[in-house]
Design a protein around this nucleic acid. Structure first.
Lengths: 325, 325
DNA sequence: ATGAAAGCGCTAACAG
DNA sequence: CTGTTAGCGCTTTCAT
């Protein structure tokens, strides 16, 4: 690999001048031309590692998410990436697999690699950002808030749970279960709270109808089966996220209980569903937009913005099933 | 951030010794203990950028894929990540968005950041690896082969197209269309070739029944609509990948032509489908395994293996629909 | 086994 | 506008 010295020699200038050419500072047109030509000829690319070491920061941001196979998070990643790459930043995607240890490893790498900032969807409420924040790096929380006083972008989760449930109530369902995500994850708890409130407001029963699960397809399947095995099974169900929804609908379909025979409302979109869209209620969560907002806030912080921490709450959109029992 | 010098001073040793402690070379137990304790106290993490600059290589590999929102590729990414992280490597995921220019940018970053190797699912047949290969870095092609003489892992695409089509023929369908991916993408062309052969072998018509599209849901939807508008519409369809399959099934469902009314075979899994699995034929492609194999080959190369280039072809598994017309 | 010292390739004062 | 120079933090000879 050619270095800045090779280019300098070939162009008959000093290494500093070559550096300047590649960093947009004032250099005479003649030398710029000479340097560019030499660089071209030598196939020179500035060595980012050296630049990073010298500058103590790199144009890379880390995005740490708990499940790279969940379309909700990949949609969000697209939003982050679009904003970041527009601004000349690269995004490295890290999959914490919902494990705090893996998450810590990636956060440590972000520090050790001098990345400029981090966007993190916390693996759990035990996520520890102290070390990262101690380095002064900007960090933005997405999807789930953390215990720390930092910028964040979250969904209106309680509202989502509430409106999903109310929609089912309006459609005439009366025994509405909720398959929530893990109990210690904020989004899950909040959505469950919304579900509970909706039922309470309409004097409907909730006892025995709330189940915590994993935010995954098999979690949704398992719990749906349990619910159907109940002496008095529910006539409708609110799925705590997209994957739980998929699992629940799969089980219902296999049993011939295709919605709207059993009412289904899902918190989150079902991008790859093959079901006719009018059969289930969906609360669309603006995942891409969440990524966009988070990236913008992070970039602001990186360029020195030091306002007090902000939390943005994103509204969601109810797409009611158009067919009911 | 504490440096190796801070630790050295505190532990009463030289910086070189600290370095040795963190690189597993022979150091007396007493000093090891002193260094570890000092490091702990100062919360020291070796600076990777400096290490990379010095060593001219980093324990990071890049994985470049054309669509991060496609579960096929994220499943593959999981396979890569599991193997890599086991071996102490981190994986940075880069989304080329099926654009050769974005892809080039990421490949250039991989060089400039001294990454140890690259796994790439080529954006198109115009993907250019010359610059990357010129640096001597190991590169493994996945999913799609490249023009270059490098290791690769691909699916048995022709076979996949063939067996998907034959399954539909056996189920009694006679007018079988194929919605393929982009014509200039190898996987699409090969699967189409399999479809064509199956039809030819059974003296069935193919004329006007092959459509190239994008490997995305809207591509599948669009073409499915076109096909249904034909004067003589097909009675079955082979979808060129998972997303095309989703789009096609969505359109059929909306028209009340739910499979098996119209036969559907999909090349690729439908992880988030809510359709009863027995209604469509699926050719399962071992995406995770592809990632695992690719990562292993790359790691081998990184540790110096210099055998001639190998190409691994992965067999797929036919999961026939259990219900037919 | 340990330390001293020389860079890896780049950028940012500082002079001129 | 341009060149000289001193590191960024680490690893790795080369001595000892």
């Amino acid at each position: 690999m050619a270095t800045i010295y090779d280019v300098a020699r070939m162009a008959g200038v000093s290494p500093a001048t070559v550096s300047r050419v590649f960093n947009g500072v004032g250099v005479s047109v003649a030398k710029v031309a000479a340097v560019r030509q030499a660089a071209e000829q030598l196939n020179f690319t500035p060595n980012r590692t050296a630049r990073t070491l010298r500058r103590q920061s790199s144009e890379v941001i880390a995005l740490v998410i708990p499940d790279i196979e969940n379309p909700y998070f990949t949609e969000m990643a697209r939003g982050v990436e679009d904003v970041a790459s527009e601004a000349g930043y690269s995004v490295v995607l890290c999959n914490s697999d919902a494990q705090v240890e893996k998450e810590s490893t990636y956060l440590r790498i972000a520090i050790a690699e001098h990345m400029s900032g981090v966007i993190v969807a916390a693996a759990s409420d035990r996520t520890n950002l102290d070390e990262l924040l101690g380095t002064g790096r900007p960090v933005v929380a997405v999807d789930r808030s953390t215990g720390h006083d930092i910028d964040g972008v979250v969904m209106a989760n309680r509202d989502a749970g509430l409106s999903a449930t109310e929609n089912l109530i309006e459609s005439g369902y009366r025994r509405i279960a909720h398959i929530a995500g893990p109990e210690h994850i904020e989004t899950a708890a909040e959505r469950a709270e919304g579900w509970r409130r909706a039922l309470a407001a309409h004097d409907l029963p909730s006892e025995g109808l709330l189940r915590f699960s994993s935010f995954r397809v098999d979690g949704g399947r398992e719990v749906m089966e349990e619910l159907l095995a109940l002496p008095e099974p529910p006539d409708a169900v609110v799925a705590g996220n997209n994957l739980i929804g998929v699992g629940a609908i799969q089980v219902l379909t296999e049993r011939g209980l295709t919605p709207p025979l059993v009412g289904v409302a899902v918190i989150g979109s079902l991008p790859f569903t093959t079901l006719s869209p009018s059969l289930v209620t969906v609360v669309r969560l603006p995942a891409r937009h969440m990524g966009v907002m988070a990236a913008r806030m992070l970039l602001d912080r990186i360029s020195g913005d030091d306002q007090p921490a902000r939390t943005v709450v994103l509204r969601n959109e109810l797409l009611p099933a158009s067919v009911s029992r």
